[in-house]
Design a protein around this nucleic acid. Structure first.
Length: 588
RNA sequence: CGGGGAGUGGCUCAGCCUGGUAGAGCACCUGGUUCGGGACCAGGGGGUCGGAGGUUCAAAUCCUCUCUCCCCGACCA
C-alpha cells in the first residue's frame, strides 16, 4: 500500500502549452512523464510503475518462447559497416566519437550485435533454433519527434531475433512471435488489429504489424469490415472497377495532339473530353546509389507510370527499389532524360533499361492498374502536346509491372469486394521475416546435417513499450483524464477518504486499503489533507481504474466504488469490499 | 531541410504595436476558518523577461545574430 502524501505525483491542472495529442497532455498532467528535450522524456513514479507492468507482461510471454539478453546501446562503427547500415541509416543513426577518435553509434535496433554473437558462437545446426530477446533503450535521431511519446528519439523496445536452419524453421519462430504478441497485447488490454505490413528498410519477405486504431496514430490502416483483410496503406491492395478503354483513333498508332496550356491530368482530361482513368500519369524519380561511406556513387533514373487518377505510394516504390531512397527528379534531370518540360512527360521516345545493352539506363516501372490497358493518353515529352493511342507493352516496353499505387477509402476489398476503410493507427509491434540479409552480410554460418556450411535464416521482432502505454491512454480517455487497463495501471485501486483530517474516515480508509493490499491488489491511499474536490479531480486524472470513496456513508457502514471507465458508482459495505474486488474479472 | 508559431516566477498566460520602477490566475510557505467535485480570509517567498551583441539617458518592449520547443510538410521499421 502506498500513501499519496509521501509520494511524488506532480499532477497539473493545465496541460503544457506545447502538448498537442491527448496522451501527451494527460500523461504530463497525471505526473507520469516530463519532457527533457525534443523526443526525450523522463518517466516519473507513476509512469515507471506502468512501464514495469508492461515490461513484466512482455517478459513473461517472451520467456515462453525465447531467452532474455541485455546488449549494449553503444556500438562500434565497424559492426554497422559490416551490415551496410552505417551508410544506409543516414542521419537517423546517432553517431559519436570516443577520445581515441573511433566512431561509435547508439543502437536503433540490434541486428548487428545479435548477429555478431551468432556469428562467433553458433557452429552447428544442433544449436538451432535460437530466439534471443532484450528489453532495452533504442536511439533514433528522428527528423521530427512528435506527439508526446508516440515518436521519440530514445525509447524502450523489446526486440528479438530468431535464428533458424531453414525457412520452415523461420515459419515456426515467426508463428511463435505472432502468438506471443497476441497474448502480450491482449494482456495489456489493448484493442488492436493485426495487419499485413510493408517490410521497409528491414527487407525480408513476410511482415505483420500490430496496430491500435486511433486518430492520434501516424500509420494508415486499410481494413475490410466484411472479411478479415487488414493491411498497412504502404502494402494494401484493392480490386479496381474495370475501366473502358478509349477506341483507337486513326491508324491506332500514337497520335500527337495539341494541348496548349493544359498541364494537370484533370486539365488535359477535360480538354480532350476523357476521364483521368484513361490517362497515364508519369512521375520521374532519381535513385542515388551510395558507397559504404555514404558518398553518392551514381544516380539512376526511375520513371513511374500510374493511372491518371491514382496516387503513387512511395513506400511501395521504395520496396520495389529494394529499400533505396528515390527522390523526385530536378528540373535539369528531367530535361536531360525527356528533353521536355515537366508536365508533359510520357514514356514514348525514351530509351529504357531493357533497350540498353548494359541494362543500366533508366528504369520504367508501370503500375499494375495499367497492365492490359489500351489507347491511353500520355504526355508527348514536348511542350503543349500529348499522345493518344498509347498502349503499354506495344508502344513502349516497361521494365516491369508492379503495384505502386495507394489504395483509397471506398475501393473494393481484394478478398471479398466489400468497401475498404482507412483508419489511423499506432504501431505497437511489428514482426519481420528477415531472411539472410544479416547472416549474409556479417558472415554467419553453421554446419548442417551433412557437414555443409549454411547460413541461418533470421527473423526480427519489435514492441514499443512506450507506445503500449500511449495507445492505452489514447483508446481510453476523456477531458478529465484517462483509465488504464488493470494489468498495466500503476495502481489498481485508489482509496480516497474525502477528509483526511477526520480520524474516523482516515482510519477506515487505511483499514480498507490494508485489506485490499493484503488481498493482492495494488492500492494507492490518497491520505493527503486536501479538499475532496481536489482528490476527485486527481483520481479522475491519474489512470487508476477503480476508486473507493470513503466518505459520509461510512456511518452507515458503506463505501462507494467508482469504475473510472464508465463512472458507474456502486455502494459496497466496508466488510465486503475485499470480496467485491476479488469477484471482478481481472481482464477489464 | 522548407513553411508557420512560441520562449516573461513551478504551470497557464497578459504586458511588446506606441521604450520609462515586471504583472494576473493557479501552485508554493505561515496562521486561521472550511471539508462530497480543483474553498475562503490574512500575511509571505519566488522572475538576470531563452542567450549574445547593438541602438538609446533608459530595452521584456526597437534592431542583428543565435539557441530551444511546438505544429504542417519533407523524411522515416
Amino acid at each position: 500500500m502506498y500513501r499519496w502524501s509521501q509520494l511524488f505525483i506532480p499532477t497539473l491542472r493545465e496541460a503544457p502549452a506545447d502538448a498537442e495529442v491527448a496522451s501527451h497532455k494527460l500523461l504530463v498532467r497525471a505526473g507520469y512523464i516530463r519532457q527533457l528535450g525534443a523526443g526525450i522524456y523522463s518517466y516519473l513514479f507513476l509512469g515507471q510503475r506502468s512501464f514495469n507492468k508492461i515490461i513484466a507482461i512482455v517478459r513473461q510471454e517472451m520467456d515462453k518462447i525465447g531467452q532474455e539478453f541485455l546488449l549494449p546501446a553503444l556500438h562500434p562503427r565497424e559492426l554497422w559497416e559490416a551490415s551496410g547500415r552505417w551508410s544506409l541509416m543516414g542521419e537517423n543513426l546517432f553517431r559519436l566519437r570516443d577520445r581515441k577518435g573511433a566512431d561509435l553509434c547508439l543502437g536503433m535496433t540490434e541486428e548487428e550485435v545479435m548477429t555478431e554473437i551468432a556469428r562467433k558462437e553458433l557452429r552447428s545446426y544442433k544449436q538451432l533454433p535460437q530466439i534471443w530477446y532484450q528489453i532495452a533503450p533504442k536511439f533514433r535521431d528522428e527528423p521530427r519527434p512528435r506527439s508526446g511519446l508516440l515518436r521519440v528519439r530514445e525509447f524502450l523496445m523489446k526486440d528479438s531475433y530468431s535464428f533458424d536452419l531453414d525457412e520452415a524453421g523461420l515459419d515456426v519462430s515467426y508463428k511463435k512471435h505472432y502468438d506471443a504478441y497476441r497474448r502480450i497485447f491482449d494482456r495489456c488490454g489493448l484493442k488492436y488489429v493485426v495487419i499485413e505490413a510493408h517490410s521497409g528498410a528491414m527487407g525480408g519477405s513476410e511482415s505483420h504489424e500490430f496496430a491500435v486504431l486511433t486518430p492520434a496514430g501516424e500509420d494508415e490502416v486499410v481494413s475490410c469490415d466484411n472479411c478479415h483483410y487488414a493491411a498497412n496503406l504502404e502494402k494494401a491492395a484493392s480490386k479496381l472497377e474495370p475501366v473502358e478503354d478509349l477506341p483507337p483513333q486513326g491508324d491506332g498508332k500514337p497520335l500527337s495532339v495539341h494541348t496548349p496550356g493544359q498541364k494537370t491530368i484533370e486539365d488535359v482530361a477535360r480538354y480532350l473530353g476523357v476521364s483521368p482513368k484513361n490517362k497515364i500519369k508519369t512521375l520521374a524519380y532519381m535513385l542515388d546509389e551510395k558507397d559504404a561511406k555514404g558518398g553518392k556513387v551514381q544516380s539512376r533514373a526511375i520513371v513511374v507510370l500510374l493511372r491518371g487518377d491514382h496516387q503513387l505510394n512511395e513506400a511501395k516504390l521504395a520496396s520495389v527499389l529494394g529499400g533505396g531512397e528515390a527522390r523526385p527528379m530536378q528540373e535539369e534531370e528531367i530535361q536531360q532524360l525527356f528533353s521536355s518540360p515537366a508536365g508533359f512527360l510520357g514514356p514514348i521516345g525514351v530509351s529504357w533499361a531493357k533497350d540498353l545493352p548494359d541494362g543500366q539506363g533508366p528504369v520504367l516501372l508501370v503500375d499494375k492498374a495499367l497492365e492490359g490497358r489500351r489507347n491511353l493518353i500520355s504526355g508527348a515529352n514536348r511542350q503543349d502536346y500529348h499522345l493518344k493511342n498509347v498502349t503499354p507493352g506495344v508502344d513502349f516496353r516497361p521494365t516491369g509491372y508492379v503495384d505502386l499505387r495507394s489504395v483509397t477509402a471506398g475501393e473494393a476489398c481484394p478478398n471479398c469486394g466489400s468497401s475498404l476503410r482507412i483508419d489511423r493507427a499506432v504501431e505497437v509491434g511489428h514482426i519481420f521475416k528477415l531472411g539472410y540479409k544479416y547472416s549474409q552480410s556479417m558472415g554467419t554460418r553453421v554446419l548442417d546435417h551433412n557437414g555443409r556450411e549454411v547460413m541461418p535464416i533470421m527473423g526480427c521482432y519489435g514492441i514499443g513499450i512506450e507506445r503500449i502505454l500511449t495507445a492505452a491512454v489514447e483508446q481510453s480517455h476523456d477531458e478529465q483524464g484517462f483509465w488504464l487497463p488493470l494489468q498495466i495501471a500503476p495502481f489498481q485501486i485508489l482509496v480516497t477518504p474525502t477528509n483526511a483530517s477526520d480520524p474516523q474516515l482516515l482510519h477506515t480508509a487505511e483499514d480498507v486499503a490494508r485489506r485490499l493490499d493484503a488481498a493482492g491488489f495494488e492500492v494507492l491511499l490518497d491520505d493527503r489533507d486536501e479538499r475532496p474536490g481536489v482528490k476527485f479531480k486527481d483520481a479522475d486524472l491519474v489512470g487508476v481504474p477503480f476508486r473507493v470513496t470513503v466518505g459520509k456513508k461510512v456511518t452507515e457502514g458503506m463505501l462507494e466504488v467508482v469504475d473510472r471507465s464508465t463512472r458507474a458508482t456502486q455502494d459496497v459495505t466496508i466488510a465486503a469490499i475485499g470480496e467485491y474486488f476479488e469477484a471482478l474479472p481481472l481482464a477489464h
